[in-house]
Computed example of a mutant assay.
Amino acid sequence: MTRETGGEQSLAPVIPLFGGGAVSRTDDAPGEDRGEACAELSAGGWHSTWVDDDDLFGDDDDLDRDDPFGETRASSAVISAALDRLIKRLRRRGLSEAEATDELVADGVEKTVAQVLVAEFVGKRWLGDADLAEQLVHTAVTRRREGRRAIAQVLSKRRIPREIADAALAALPDDDSERALEFARQKAGGYRGVPVDVAIRRLVGQLQRRGYPPGVAMSAARLALADPHDEAR
């Protein structure tokens, strides 16, 4: 976002749209005030129309002299509209910092400006890669019963930085075998009447697609299909 001033290019001003300092984050209590931040976001804790153009750009005379085509004011309108859309998206689902930056860029905000604005959101705890990684891992383990490899792929797809993804995975208990067996037992009833070797092969395939290693998948499939407490078989 540049403009010509006396033959030289200068960056249009980046406006601190939120006010106040960023909320500090402590390593020993990650995500402790995430709920409050989400509540603030859902309640509409910030809105672009709260910023007065006169406060941002000064007198109209100065605007006309320094920015005769109104480029700065137009850029501010683009940023405000893009931020409003981003807030609506964040109310529906979490975004990584890279995803949020891309959303702003797609809505017409220059990348360097988008990165500054996303940093403001991170300071407000309205988004953050560590919080999102924790949420994705929790969902993968408790709802989808996925293995470590599949979880790592999800974090990579959502563009969580490697060091944050590794930290989230390191916090996982070493219970792939237990989760694989739990998932296999849930699916075992669907193989009633299917030859055992066919059922094992298919169930192993399901487990591997969930991110479990071949050995873990095979062991879980055999145990689940041989489980005498499985009422469905």
Rank of each mutant, 00 (worst) to 15 (best):
R192L: 04
A165L: 08
V51L: 15
P68E: 11
D61N: 11
E110D: 14
V204W: 00
V137E: 03
V113M: 02
Q208I: 14
A232S: 12
E97P: 01
R209S: 12
G7A: 09
A180H: 05
S80N: 09
I200K: 09
C38G: 03
F183E: 02
R143F: 06
A77S: 13
H229N: 15
D166Q: 14
R210F: 08
A188W: 03
D62H: 08
R92A: 12
R65W: 14
S75Y: 07
V109Y: 04
D61Q: 12
Y191R: 01
W50P: 02
T5K: 11
P214V: 03
S80P: 01
P16A: 07
G31R: 08
R85D: 13
A140I: 00
V141M: 05
A98D: 09
V216E: 08
L225W: 06
L90G: 04
F183S: 09
F57P: 04
P16Q: 03
R65F: 14
D55C: 08
S42N: 12
Q206N: 14
G19K: 06
A226L: 15
R210D: 01
S75A: 15
V216Q: 08
G20W: 10
A22D: 11
A98C: 02
G123L: 02
R210N: 14
R149V: 11
E178G: 04
D33Q: 14
D53Y: 06
A170K: 14
D175F: 02
A140M: 01
V116W: 10
L104H: 07
R34H: 15
R3E: 02
A106F: 09
